[in-house]
Design a protein around this nucleic acid. Sequence first.
DNA 1: TTGTAGGCGTTATCAA
DNA 2: TTGATAACGCCTACAA
Lengths: 340, 340
Amino acid sequence: MTPRVTLTDVAREAGVSLATASRAINGNKNRKVRDDIRERVHAAAEKLRYSPDANAQAMARGETKQLGLIVHSITDPYFSAIASGVMVAAERRGFVVTLASTQSNANRERELVELLSSQRAHALVVVGGRRADPAVLAALTGALAEHRRTGGATVLVGQAVLETDTVVIDNVDGARSLARALHARGYRDVAILAGPADHLTAQERAQTFAQELALLGGARTTMVHSRFTRDGGRDATQDVLRSARPELIFAVNDVMALGALAALTDAGLRVPQDVSLAGFDDIDALQDVTPRLTTVHLPLHDIGIAATDLAFAAPAPEPRVVRVQGTVTIRDSTPGPPGR
Amino acid sequence: MTPRVTLTDVAREAGVSLATASRAINGNKNRKVRDDIRERVHAAAEKLRYSPDANAQAMARGETKQLGLIVHSITDPYFSAIASGVMVAAERRGFVVTLASTQSNANRERELVELLSSQRAHALVVVGGRRADPAVLAALTGALAEHRRTGGATVLVGQAVLETDTVVIDNVDGARSLARALHARGYRDVAILAGPADHLTAQERAQTFAQELALLGGARTTMVHSRFTRDGGRDATQDVLRSARPELIFAVNDVMALGALAALTDAGLRVPQDVSLAGFDDIDALQDVTPRLTTVHLPLHDIGIAATDLAFAAPAPEPRVVRVQGTVTIRDSTPGPPGR
DNA sequence: TTGTAGGCGTTATCAA
DNA sequence: TTGATAACGCCTACAA
């Protein structure tokens, strides 16, 4: 285990001062180093296989080239699609992304903000629906504010509930449009897999969908809560089936819809012949599922890019909001209720 | 934008020396700080909202709490499953994971090793099949060796082609077992979607599968190359169908198998009635696909954990190898050739 | 048990 | 244009 070669070694090898070596190698935009010297330094660096110490640079410069990213779960296609957008946008700027997952634990979310903040990540991007719990929200707000207070940027993806830049996903518009499209197809008897009761994204989608249906008239809706996961969708569907067989099941996200599909299949019910099914998000995995699921398409990858762009934009006095619309995408799983 | 509060501030606030504050807050296993003083320091830290600077700690200690993770693509369920294993194992040790993706660009892989190495990540985990190209392999080897030379750990997931700790996936055993199981079911006319010709994992799986079939006798196999992706599987299948209609298509990974399934469906062919289909990996997404696909199950999450454990194990004189076996998992997509 | 002081690898200020 | 040298925030002998 050889010690790291430092810039001092390079300077000595090149026969210049530390300062000059530093300037030659980082060419601080102002190219104040004579060409031949610069080349000499670079040659020395090459020869010695010098690799700058990012931590030391971070200390000296007072800022890192790191972007902190917090998601619920990286195996969830919703998050991995957004994460990939964040990664390409960060990479484009020469930044490295430090990733952490909360496993949907709200307290963990705040802990991770603090952890990544202590890494002095330049910007923090937090993805995922917030909980309605005011205490939890306040804690997160505080941790993020703390990070901004010291010059960091913070961006949320989800709903604009905190005082920071946010990429807002227009769940209300998406859910309303979907409800209209489905009502127009004739669905009147629907079960909503509403996710956790205190989950804002789930709330927005479920309530808006129900309200819009009520507004349009003639519809009977039941709502059942569960986790925001595939298993949650599965369990909720089994609950529903115990007491009824709706024409349509609307799951507030695609992952839950997939759980619902599994539960329906297990129960011997066919989609869409026996029960219709719709989700939300349009995750990639949907393209390999039979039948093709109706959903609200979200540009997930671009959402990640937008969040990162916000993180690197010049700081604004007021929190900025980038609003993202979904697109209702009717597919095979909702041809209209049977017998029409 | 307030300046960061430093340990010096905390020390002053608590009326102790910097050294004492440092000891009180990091309790360097040897608790050499009087209880009342420690409490005083902690109170001061709390009051001032002190957050240690991970970069400064890294510099002073000469080591970071970062784990570098390099994958091909985070949206690929194969990689995200392994990544989630790495993340939980790293988190358990109080480490943060810095993630980078190569988009299957082999040169990019080496660059990223150097980038994460310059972050002074304690350990580097590189996931994904290597290319057969000796020059590329040598470059990667060099970059990893460089990282180890300075005290870092490096772990590969894939095949044991480099001089470093490796989690080896036994592709040969898996492909052979799958070939036997499928041959036993009566398949004789098979097309292999072999992936890129220079991709070691793809090679191992495709060649072993073909060889075993040849060994068992009576089989006719054709092999077609393409990218290692869903689109690659789709394109390759279209190629195959142009000139033949095999009894069975074996894709060297599940993602390609899903592409194949799409292409078959588009061509009006049913799986398994018209063509049977098998993959490799058993990614999560498979559970929502109809028909249930035959594959070789790999414990992806555990592979991530194993790789991380290796990264934190005491350095060994010789490269270690952890071998992981797959499990042949016959499902609905391979009931046996038609007409038997 | 506590404090003093030197050092980690770079950058940046200020003279030369 | 280059070179000393003081930070940057923290850790850790070493001394008290």
